[in-house]
Design a protein around this nucleic acid. Structure first.
Lengths: 292, 292
DNA sequence: CCATGCTTGAAACGTCCGTTCCGTTGAGGC
DNA sequence: GCCTCAACGGAACGGACGTTTCAAGCATGG
């Protein structure tokens, strides 16, 4: 039968033949492609559990694809790991040696990745955990969390609008559709909170909306990039995120990271505060279900 | 006892303590340093034969160096292979295993930062520059770039909707407001292109909209997380981004990075193609003005 | 509605693995 | 030359592994 001897060929085969496979075998195929490292190191039992199938299904799968058994299949994944060493360094070197003309998309990608990593690194050192705690405290106490971010900051606000409800937290994205921003924010009050996100050059709308919230005595948590940001003086608590840039483009990695942190921390704080509700599972420890 | 947890430390230990060791144990030490891959994958019996010792000697060796047994020693060699991008996998795991009460926001932030870094690192290795080139070519040739991303993927699409116009590229965000997605996409054609972004579990709307674009003969560039993604079979070109997760939360760093790369690369390609227009300054090299 | 064939879950099987135990070997001290 | 003790080889053990088997589940076609 077929039985490809290297990982890439196997991957191709799985993709092309996936439709013909039974349900559980598809499940294995997907897991194998998504977690090749597990296949290399795990035992049949451990892999089966991670993929939510029976060990016997793994053997069936291996045979269906043409191998003599699970062990035979596994050897392909092991060889992949052995042979993959010189990869990354090699690529970097050729990229460096290439023309400095940033024409090459791969080169751009490396640059942006570099910038993102630098941003993350910096954030770890600069964000004070007291500020973080203060921000979490405010948001955990809020009835509704209003979210404002325009232009470049909008994706961050949009992400929070996606994540917070998943954590059982009431939130409202001020997207300013049809210029209705002020109206969307009309009912904010002292028992709510506003998350405002803006970076230089600060979108006036964001600042105005934050000011409006302050006027209505709502606490404001700001994510911004400088102590001189207009948001910094308005905000009850503000967190400084400085993103590195590559050429004219700033990373967003650190900001997103902070946003995720805030969301999850608030979720955990609430379930800790609010709930003597049985032994509640911690959000970060929950299983392999849908990721947020 | 001592028992170093990573390969480099073990190597150092072996070199320094080799003289003190009994003859057969020296033999094992030399073999281990010379053939680490064998140690990672082989069985005690197979390794023993290659090193010309008894299996029991391997166990003795492991205990002499401070491990609880051969298996314990072997895990060090396995982790070495697994962490081709050394730190992250392991560090993430230990962060996970640390007290599940990840109550501390700072701890959460570190976890998310690790996940983001791991995602970026992984992306550098897995995204093929040919695919990237192909995607850029398609988008550079498009009259209008339509952008689709729902739920978790929406922030990415929203970011592109912000960045592309700044680069002089006509784009249209299909945000599906009022369920008008299909209508927003109504005029897409062969001369346009669609960027579709979706991750497991794939939002049906995104897949449907991509299918609609294909039906109208528009090329589709997909950002997704598996060859088995419904977007992968629909797309003209698809790019695989696998994000690491921390607990139930997936990073978005790599996806954003790719999105930025696509945007800028398309911008550059266009100005290179379209313009004998004087010595035009490259986008990434431009000065310290407003960052995108 | 039943018969058929494939898929699936669970348990049983036999093998090979890592480990332990014990007898033998060889070198150094008295 | 004998005693002591660490080093070593080899066999035996218990456990975990991959594999096989079998019966139940399920949809399909007659």
């Amino acid at each position: 039968m077929e039985a490809p001897r290297d990982f890439d060929a196997l991957k191709l085969l799985l993709v092309s033949r996936r439709a013909d496979l039974p349900r559980r075998l598809q499940q294995v195929a997907e897991f194998a492609v998504a977690h090749p490292d597990e296949l290399a190191f795990g035992t049949a039992a451990s892999i089966a559990e991670l993929a939510s199938v029976q060990p016997s299904t793994l053997v069936r799968f291996a045979k269906a694809v043409g191998y003599s058994g699970f062990s035979d299949l596994q050897s392909v994944f092991r060889h992949r790991l052995r042979d993959r060493w010189p990869d990354y360094g090699e690529r970097l070197r050729t990229l460096h040696d290439a023309q400095p003309a940033a024409e090459d998309p791969a080169r751009l990608m490396f640059g942006f990745a570099e910038a993102a990593s630098a941003s993350l690194q910096r954030m770890r050192q600069t964000v004070a955990s007291e500020d973080l705690d203060a921000a979490v405290a405010i948001l955990a106490g809020a009835e509704t969390i209003y979210l404002v971010g325009m232009r470049r900051a909008f994706p961050v606000a949009a992400y929070l609008a996606y994540a917070l409800p998943k954590l059982g937290i009431r939130s409202l994205l001020i997207d300013n559709v049809a210029h209705l921003g002020a109206d969307q924010l009309a009912h904010v009050g002292p028992r709510d909170a506003l998350v405002a996100i803006s970076f230089s050059p600060y979108t006036p709308t964001t600042v105005e909306l934050a000011a409006a919230a302050v006027a209505r005595h709502a606490p404001v948590v700001a994510l911004t990039d400088s102590p001189f940001s207009p948001l910094a003086e308005l905000a009850t608590v503000w967190l400084e995120v400085i993103e590195a840039d590559f050429g004219a483009f700033r990373s967003m990695a650190a900001t997103f990271c902070l946003a995720m942190t805030l969301a999850v921390a608030v979720g955990e704080r609430r379930s800790a505060d609010g709930a003597a509700s049985a032994a509640r599972q911690s959000t970060v420890d929950q299983g392999v279900g849908t990721k947020l």
